[in-house]
């Protein structure tokens, strides 16, 4: 019982990570893949923040009334990670938009199907 209580936060994190991973590898739609990636990223936030929490502690803003604070270091790291995350997400979306313009679709299978003849051709040329 205590083992479950002690590690529940890790398992919640894990579940989110697995769901994100599954979306990324199982779905062919590029926008959906980016959503999966973003979900995976939030699991990393939890992984960092959860161990820093102390039960009975407060947010790390110094005041006279409190003596116990949660660990501020993970907060700093994740704070910057979120903003960087959205910037890279925008970069990914920009690439998706360009792919859509080049191929007319954002489904991975259709892009591969379009690429197949071209690849075949270059292979033939090489021979």
């Amino acid at each position: 019982m205590t083992a479950i209580a002690n590690h529940f936060s890790y398992w919640a994190t894990l579940f989110i990570a697995i769901a994100g991973l599954y979306i990324v590898i199982a779905r062919g739609n590029l926008v959906k893949k980016l959503v999966g990636l973003a979900i995976f990223q939030t699991s990393v936030y939890l992984l960092y923040i959860a161990p820093g929490k102390l039960i009975g502690g407060t947010a790390p803003i110094i005041a006279d009334k409190f003596a116990v604070y949660s660990n501020p270091l993970p907060h700093v790291l994740i704070l910057t990670a979120i903003v960087v995350g959205v910037a890279t997400l925008a970069l990914g979306l920009a690439i998706v938009v360009r792919i859509k313009e080049a191929y007319g679709t954002i489904e991975e299978d259709e892009i591969l199907a379009q690429e197949q003849p071209a690849l075949q051709q270059t292979a033939d040329n090489k021979m």
């Binding site: 903003v83 959205v86 910037a87 925008a90 920009a94 938009v97």
Partner: peptide
């Protein structure tokens, strides 16, 4: 920087 980048990204996407 952050405000500028976020705004620019929005302009680029919406503008297209």
């Amino acid at each position: 920087t952050v405000a500028g980048v976020m705004l620019k990204i929005f302009y680029m996407f919406a503008g297209r």
